[in-house]
Structure formats: structure tokens, C-alpha cells
């Protein structure tokens, strides 16, 4: 008892891969692209999302023009997307909420991004990218019994003892930069112990409580030619996402207790090794 990963064998609730262009995506190129048919086969629920932006300034609120995007998704019975490919504004986002294993999920996500960039580059060879980001959300569900968060998390370089010791429901949001070859990589780590009943203050951990761990890694750089990132080099999109994955594993291994880390497959227990 205590806290268990939501999917039994792992705790990954969502993984989202984002690539940002230096200019708005021309949706018409993708609409006319041959690869659209393949996306429609794999992600049959197609929608046109819209972005509404309001800018607050000295003159009051200024409504910006509505930006239309394009979205392909594979939906669950309840309508939530298991896989989603979204083009909106400047961002290409692939979101997976049916995570099975890194190799399969990242390969599929990378394929969508490569296919999209290839189509966009063909129409505009000067296309540039300015951000590559990955967001991973892990969730552990409270299964009753031991409500001490220390059965799941360990205080250390990523978790301060303070908030976690004050009340059953708590959160700790933090952020920092790391530098990879001088390029800043924004890291955000948000840990929330939440109950679904609402945000009322409670004295004991509710039965429906869960621990949500969100880790965002976002590399921001001076816009560079998009085609450079599709080559088989250490600076490719693929290599960047692989590095994000390794850094996420490293962070989780420092954040989770030994038992929890074994439960989600970060380590093998000595019994399994023998």
C-alpha cells in the first residue's frame, strides 16, 4: 500500500514533444501535404483548434487575430486523446497519454515531427526552429495505508523537506536552467500532491489523492535552420529528445525512493537480478 504508479508497470501519464518554429505554421501546406492522409489513418479524429490571444497593455485589452491550427488525434472512448498531433501558432506538438515504452513512443512522435517538418521545409527552405521541448508527467495514486510521502519521494536536491512536511496536500514548483554546450535548457519541476475532491484543506490524505510529478525541459536558442535538426547529428531533434529522456530518468532516480524507483522500472531489484 502507499503510492502506486498509475499504470502498474510505469507512472508516465503524459509525454509531450514540442518543436517551435520562428514563424506561424502555414496550415495550408500541411492540408495539401501527401503525408496528411497517413496522419488521418493513424489519428482519425481531426479538428481545427483555435488560439485566442488578448494582450493587456496601457490602452487596455487588445484582441489579437484568431489563429487557426490543425489537430489529428486518436481518441479514447471518453473522448480524451491517447495520441495527438497538433499544429497551432508556431508549435508542432505530439502528445501521448498512452505511454508504453520510450523507444516506441519517441519513434512514433519523432516520425510525426519529421514528416511535418519535411513538408514545411519543402515549401519554405528557410524555415527555422527556436525551441525543442519535452514535458513528462508521472502520476502515483494513493492506494490507502501508509500516507507518508517518504515511501514515494526522498528529500534531496530536487525536493525540499519543508512543504512536504506541513500538510497532507502540498505542492512544490521549481525551475532552473542547465547549459548544454552553452545553450540554456529551462527545467521546470512541479510536484503536486492533490485530491480530486477539491482544494479544501484536509487534515489527512484523501483516498483519491495522487502525486503528480511534471518535468519540463525546454531548449531555447537563436533560430536555426530546421533542416539542420533533421540530420543524423548530435544536435538533431532525435538526439535532443534522447538527452531529455536520460535527464528525466536521472531526475526521477534522485527524486523517487528506492522502492518506487524499482516499481517503475528505473532499477532492477536484487531478486530480479539473481
Amino acid at each position: 500500500m502507499g503510492f502506486e504508479p498509475i499504470h502498474g508497470v510505469h507512472a508516465v501519464e503524459t509525454v509531450a514533444f514540442t518543436v517551435r518554429q520562428d514563424r506561424p505554421i502555414d496550415i495550408s501546406i500541411l492540408q495539401q501535404s501527401a503525408v496528411r492522409k497517413l496522419w488521418e489513418t493513424e489519428l482519425p479524429a481531426k479538428q481545427i483548434p483555435q488560439l485566442l490571444e488578448t494582450e493587456m497593455g496601457p490602452a487596455g485589452a487588445v484582441q489579437k487575430p484568431v489563429v487557426s491550427g490543425l489537430e489529428f488525434a486518436n481518441l479514447r472512448q471518453n473522448g480524451s486523446p491517447a495520441w495527438l498531433l497538433r499544429f497551432l501558432g508556431t508549435d508542432i506538438v505530439v502528445e501521448c497519454t498512452r505511454y508504453t515504452d520510450w523507444e516506441k513512443v519517441s519513434n512514433r512522435a519523432l516520425r510525426y515531427i519529421r514528416e511535418a517538418l519535411s513538408a514545411l521545409i519543402t515549401a519554405d527552405s528557410n524555415l527555422k526552429l527556436s525551441v525543442i521541448a519535452m514535458n513528462v508527467v508521472d502520476r502515483f495514486r494513493y492506494k490507502g495505508g501508509d500516507a507518508d510521502y517518504r515511501s514515494l519521494l526522498k528529500a534531496g536536491s530536487f525536493l525540499a523537506v519543508g512543504p512536504a512536511s506541513k500538510s497532507p496536500l502540498w505542492h512544490q514548483h521549481s525551475g532552473w536552467f542547465e547549459f548544454w554546450n552553452g545553450i540554456p535548457v529551462l527545467n521546470q519541476l512541479n510536484i503536486d500532491v492533490q485530491g480530486t475532491a477539491g482544494d479544501s484543506v484536509v487534515a489527512t490524505l484523501p483516498d483519491d489523492a495522487s502525486v503528480r510529478i511534471q518535468h519540463l525541459q525546454e531548449m531555447r536558442f537563436v533560430p536555426q535552420s530546421a533542416s539542420d535538426f533533421l540530420c543524423d547529428t548530435s544536435g538533431s531533434i532525435e538526439a535532443t529528445f534522447s538527452a531529455y529522456h536520460i535527464e528525466n530518468l536521472r531526475l526521477m532516480s534522485k527524486l523517487l525512493s528506492l522502492d518506487a524507483a524499482i516499481n517503475v522500472g528505473l532499477y532492477q531489484s536484487s531478486e530480479e537480478n539473481s
Partner: peptide, 8 residues
């Protein structure tokens, strides 16, 4: 997939 332009 449309052929990629060759990069660096």
C-alpha cells in the same frame, strides 16, 4: 515522406 533537403 517528402525528401529532406540536405543539411549540414
Amino acid at each position: 515522406v517528402i525528401a529532406l533537403p540536405t543539411g549540414k
